[in-house]
Write a protein that binds this DNA or RNA. Structure first.
Lengths: 132, 132
DNA sequence: CTATCTGCAAAGTCTTTGCACTTTT
DNA sequence: AAAAGTGCAAAGACTTTGCAGATAG
């Protein structure tokens, strides 16, 4: 699982990730593949996602309950604004933030730093729905 | 478990959290309590931590593998710089960041937002150790 | 043909829950 | 006593792993 052969399962998983814009759980990806006929076992989905995440091919974040969310690695460096109800994600970016983060790391003598900024809330639509 | 009675278990858990500065897992807290004689069942530890986190009495973050880390609620709002090797945590804070985050949320019409900023890297000590 | 990958099912972790019993109030 | 908390063990959810069979190179 360290190397990366071009298998049907891996292709299907990669395709599924490429097709969807939002973060998905391994379970969802597995279910979607099954629906589309291009099934792969849950174990295989996990193994491939882990491999892809390991090589940096895909992004991973953790939901509030600890479940992992995967998404195909995108664009330049950025962060997320996530709706806690519908899961909609908006990418945000700012040089200010990046700079500040790097300054902090340097100031405290940290090396090989990486960071993650996540904001969760209710998007307008869900907010309106909930308050009805 | 919604209200908060003054029980031995809750006191022991709160004391344990107050005593330690770093983030601990529920399992660790449970083990430590057992060692100190002031044991409480794992289920009780979880129930109390959940209750305390719910009322905002303690902070919760998720480890990379999804396990929850708890820590007695500290100071004002802040974020963390964590050593990926030894786990040392440094708290960082900045009005700039907070403001920027709020602006972003507002700009995208998000409500009831919360956010988390985490930086991980190697602290100086671990960096030196690793490169030997 | 050999190294890998996949499926399946069993096993592991962390966490939650049902229920009878105990402690608070 | 009534209400809330606790322990224990069973149950859940997500993820990992062992192993035989299938597949890529």
């Amino acid at each position: 699982m360290s190397t990366r052969r071009d298998t049907a399962a891996r292709r299907a998983i990669a395709a599924e990730l490429a097709e969807q814009q939002n973060f998905r759980t391994a379970q969802e990806i597995h279910a979607d593949l099954k629906l589309k006929g291009a099934s792969a076992s849950l174990a295989t989905v996990y193994r491939n996602l882990a491999a892809m995440a390991g090589t940096g091919d895909i992004d991973v974040v953790l939901k509030a309950d600890g479940e992992a969310l995967y998404r195909h690695c995108s664009q330049p460096h950025h962060h997320h604004l996530i709706c806690r109800s519908c899961g909609k994600t908006i990418e945000v970016r700012s040089h200010h933030i990046e700079n500040w983060l790097e300054e902090q790391a340097a100031e405290h003598n940290f090396y090989d730093t990486d960071h993650r900024v996540e904001m969760i809330g209710l998007c307008q639509i869900c907010h309106e729905t909930h308050s009805s």
